[in-house]
């Protein structure tokens, strides 16, 4: 292991290529530190995206040595192949420039999965009482901490070959909404994921679960949606029109 990292970074748009940089190795260095070093010391025109630097905002995800990762919490020592580090924009979303990816399809699908709360109570109603240990609350708890980093979306095989597929993050969010006992219109959620490209398209490869940086299990969420969808359909409760 030398004092210098051999870093290759994607430059340009979709037709760009990898450019080589030498970056000094430092203690506890993250992949985001490497990218920031290059921009501040070698080439100020390097475009990339980050905000919190502590694994909360989900904006710094990139492809590191072929795998999607959150770069602010990924230590260089854990992912380098000898001294070499290849950093590219996230996969399965268009590249804008260099390491900045266009997240539009990811968030549009997030919206179309309708994983949001549909309330019916007014300000004059009492607070909903949800027992912390109820099965639905426990299920929602297990899936609610998504940071929207799109690492799972980038890792998903089905997204790569089926452009209309909603993807793991959007479906994971829909599963959280489905398990919200206060929600007045759970049918919205099931109808929104019962479309072509919805939860039924998942092949359960579990790349999402393998890559999720915060340890969520979107595969289990999608399996839950499939089960709920099947039950609702067989019982005639799923009104599709």
């Amino acid at each position: 292991m030398s004092d210098t990292l051999e870093v290759r970074i994607w430059r340009g748009g979709a037709e760009g290529g990898l450019v080589h940089y030498n970056v000094p190795r430092q203690a506890s260095q993250t992949v985001l530190d490497v990218v920031t070093w290059v921009q501040r010391n070698d080439d100020p025109s390097l475009a990339y995206r980050f905000a919190c630097r502590v694994g909360m905002c989900g904006s710094c995800a990139m492809t590191v040595n072929g795998r999607p990762r959150w770069t602010c919490r990924t230590h260089v020592d854990k992912v380098t192949d000898g001294d070499s580090l290849t950093i590219e924009p996230l996969g399965n979303v268009p590249v804008i420039k260099d390491l900045a990816a266009d997240m539009t399809p990811f968030f549009e699908k997030w919206q179309s999965a309708r994983g949001r709360f549909h309330g019916a109570a007014t300000r004059r109603d009492a607070y909903a009482r949800i027992k912390p240990d109820s099965p639905a609350r426990q299920t929602a708890n297990a899936h609610v901490e998504c940071i929207n980093c799109a690492v799972c979306y980038s890792a998903c095989d089905v997204v790569s070959w089926r452009k209309e597929y909603l993807g793991p993050a959007a479906l994971n969010r829909a599963w959280v909404a489905f398990n919200d006992e206060r929600d007045a219109h759970l049918g919205y959620v099931l109808r929104s994921v019962a479309v072509n490209g919805g939860c039924m398209s998942c092949h359960t490869h579990q790349s999402c679960t393998q890559h999720c940086p915060v340890g969520l299990d979107p595969s289990a969420a999608i399996a839950g949606l499939k089960k709920a969808l099947s039950r609702a359909y067989l019982s005639g409760r799923l009104k599709l029109s």
Binding site: A194, S201, L229, S230, Y233
Partner: peptide, 11 residues
Amino acid sequence: MTPLAFVLQRL
């Protein structure tokens, strides 16, 4: 895939 096709394949 429609819900009918999905359920039929599993059944």
